[in-house]
Design a protein around this nucleic acid. Structure first.
Lengths: 95, 95
DNA sequence: TTTTTTGATAGCATCTGTGCTATCATCCAA
DNA sequence: TTGGATGATAGCACAGATGCTATCAAAAAA
């Protein structure tokens, strides 16, 4: 049986444009995942985190549930209060 | 004579809220700087990069000149075509 | 079970980023 | 000097994110 990853790889080969979009979605969701993990690891709720950041809980929820793609400023605001950092690195060449 | 960094450190101590804002600005500008550096290192113009990303040159210019804080999606789109990556790491504790 | 907490959603107004087009000054090469 | 390339800006309409408030179902705690 074909897995989701099989399908993903297939699409990436067939349509390079969509492939870029998919990679972007994957990156965003991985960033968001790291964000949720860190928050839960800190043992705080969305409401608590939102209060620390000076934003409403709904904004945190929207981002965590991937309803919106956050502005870089909003993301960095949250990251600061989570003790997370966003680093620029060269992407590995696809071997 | 006091340097700009002296002033920055002073403000960071006096007003922790503004300090957070300043750190955020510093992070953003460092990210943008890396982006500009990479583009120039690749020897391509804003117009060329914009064409690669499927966006207008004005959008690239606005971001590079820090007229706007980009959406995460927009930034990742550009980063992909620059061969750059955004990585989540725990921030170093202030020693 | 009852109460509280939590995450997800909704509606709305507002702000902001974006696309699109065009212009401009500067710089560099022909 | 002339012409092309470049980066910065402008105005505009539109799309999208955000703040604010409130609600709801499910989970956790009492």
């Amino acid at each position: 049986m074909k897995t989701w990853n099989d399908y993903k790889e297939h699409v990436k080969i067939v349509d390079p444009v969509i492939a870029k979009d998919m990679e972007e979605i994957e990156v965003i969701s991985s960033i968001v995942s790291a964000m949720v993990e860190q928050r839960t690891a800190m043992g705080i709720s969305q409401r608590e985190l939102a209060a620390m950041c000076g934003i409403p809980q709904s904004s945190v929820a929207r981002i965590e549930s991937c309803k919106t793609t956050p502005n870089l400023g909003t993301l960095l605001n949250i990251f600061q209060h989570l003790g997370l950092q966003l680093t620029v690195t060269p992407s590995k060449p696809t071997l």
